[in-house]
Nucleic acid binder design. Structure first.
Lengths: 345, 345
DNA sequence: TAGGGCCTGGACAACGTTGTCAGGCTCGGG
DNA sequence: CCCGAGCCTGACAACGTTGTCCAGGCCCTA
């Protein structure tokens, strides 16, 4: 009979268990468990023998079995919209940092802005028995989570509120940020200000739109319908919207861009435009300071959002936290030039 | 006795099991299992009763137990350096896409460029019994993975090769890309070209340096020691290095930047510099086309790296793939202006 | 109507670990 | 010298699921 080669090992690989280790070390099963978990009550000599067997066999504890027995998995789930979006990188990273500090692993998935996919992912994570969930919601009805909440799965929503369910929420002050950004343009003399944002069914988009309207109203400026574009934020569409605002009968002298993707496209359009147009964007973008002019933005602190959410999650798990709350984090206006351009009529 | 309230449910929440469902539906345990897994051999009427009980109790199958029984977890692990780095966003995303297409979840963690943390993460993932691993190595010795490979954990290294172990590797053509980028500068008349890169113990950094040297040698240009900076890539240090190269006795007329972080800092330095200096950077950066001049880069396809790696992983799991290979993906030079500036002596 | 085959449903063991508990050993004091 | 206390150690059940196997009921055919 030929010796086991790599190929068959790969295919039919079966891992050593505590039983195997115990047999090899000539001790009982439970003793191995004790050594693996650093529990007291094992002679140094016995421990050495067990450790030797562990190393020789390449034993690794099976956490699935452990979880089954203990009930806690020491892992949390993160569901976000798109890992490739630069806004979610730091958020995801800060959630991971907090998880790590609590000895938990992070399992994540992207919903791609699809409510069904969000639900599918969340339920898959619950089936894995994650201890908690950080969710950036794509859908607006989260009643499907009720049994999970009842069963004790800690849950925090981030960036957008949960729908029809009482849970922790951590948000940026989208309304205030947008209002400040638009007020900033008004303070620099603009009156005809355009707004390009996402579909209002998305909570953040709706809030930012509300901020825009509030700032205009506070300044007593009536808003023309042609100054607003609320829809998908694919580049072509944003480009068309921007061009229309800039060239219509009542052309805008400034634009407020509703998120980072919109901002980038608007910058491109403005770069081709003869007359200088002021711009303030929601969300910071990398290299914004190196452009000519620098891009003025209303910045959210993505890392703080993630950190705050994750910390609340673990406080829920501690039992320190019981009543769901809604937390709003402030935004910060960063002037870099584009928002301070005077109107050029 | 008061009814169960949310608080105690949260605290002491215990989830219904198949046994509970079976009891409520008045059927056997296995019948519930059949319904949950869509197995044949259940009357529509029985199925309805079971489904009703499932909904009423909010039952969710416990995948830990399932995994324990079945052996496969339908999840893969991804260990990378920093989720917040824009280079890893698309990579991570494309790995996730492939995983999803194969019905697997993605568990990930950041090593923060620390070999110990990498090992700790990888082993934690193995303890979870992930079916496979995609690793962007921080360390250079991966012998600790040998038992895992033997046990059948599919493994693919990305971006950097594995150390002392025979495993699949998917890389960008760092050497060729850097050589082409530097040759591009030479073709535009430069001879005094600086190189700012990461520590050569990092494989990608070493390869790019090798590419720089090769291009210079091919052109018969001797390289001055003061033209090269190989070390940490924190902004201050890069800034100092760039300033020295630009102001020394033998100042460079062009700079090749070894990665995206370096490129960004160099752009800042050059923006403050009177005399125009040509620049080619390794890795594409967002908005590179909007700067003045546009930034010429050697772009890697991060998404393709992730996709290729993940696909190989699942082919290993299929058994379609047996022999470890080393795959190099081509890079692409994107001319945008900064790399085509003529030398200004 | 009896017998055979098919279909449905359930009892039971097993996956690998941890908590409980009891047994055996050693050592010191009476 | 005996007994109790205290320390190690191991046997056993349980976690929730799935695979195996068997029993019982039904229908169809001879």
């Amino acid at each position: 009979m030929p010796q086991t080669n790599l190929r068959s090992a790969r295919r039919y690989g079966t891992r050593p268990t505590m039983k195997d280790v115990a047999a090899r070390a000539g001790v009982g099963l439970k003793t191995v468990s004790r050594v693996v978990n650093g529990e007291p009550g094992v002679t140094p000599e016995t421990e050495r023998r067990v450790q030797e067997a562990i190393d020789a066999l390449g034993f690794r504890r099976n956490d699935s079995a452990r979880v089954l027995r203990k009930g806690r998995t020491a892992s949390i789930g993160l569901v976000l919209e798109d890992l490739a979006d630069p806004f979610y990188g730091p958020l995801s990273r800060s959630v991971e940092e907090v998880a790590r500090a609590h000895g938990a692993l992070l399992i994540n998935g992207s919903s791609a802005e699809d409510p069904d996919r969000e639900q599918e992912l969340v339920l898959a994570l619950c089936a894995r028995r994650v201890d908690g969930l950080v969710v950036i919601p794509a859908g607006d009805d989260h009643r499907y989570l009720e049994p999970e909440l009842k069963a004790g799965v800690a849950t925090v929503f981030v960036d957008r509120p949960a729908g029809h369910i009482d849970a922790d929420v951590v948000l940026s002050d989208n309304f205030g940020g947008a209002r400040d950004g638009v007020a900033h343009l008004i303070a620099h003399g603009h009156r005809r200000i355009g707004f390009i944002g996402d579909m209002p069914r998305i909570h953040t988009a709706a809030e930012r739109l509300r901020g825009y309207r509030a700032a205009m109203e506070d300044a007593g400026i009536p808003v023309a319908g042609s100054w607003m574009s609320l829809g998908a934020t694919d580049p072509e569409r944003v480009r068309r919207a921007a061009e229309e605002m800039l060239s219509g009968a009542d052309p805008v002298t400034a634009v407020f861009a509703g998120n980072n993707r919109v901002t980038v496209t608007v910058i491109r359009v403005l770069a081709e435009h003869a007359r200088p147009v002021a711009l303030v964007g929601f969300d910071d973008i990398e290299l914004a300071d190196l452009l000519q002019p620098g891009v003025t933005v209303v910045a959210q602190d993505a890392a703080a959002l993630g950190r705050t959410a994750a910390e609340r999650l673990f406080r829920q798990l501690d039992g320190t936290l019981v009543t769901p709350e809604r937390i709003e984090l402030p935004t910060r206006l960063i002037s870099r030039g584009s928002g301070e351009l005077p109107p050029a009529d």
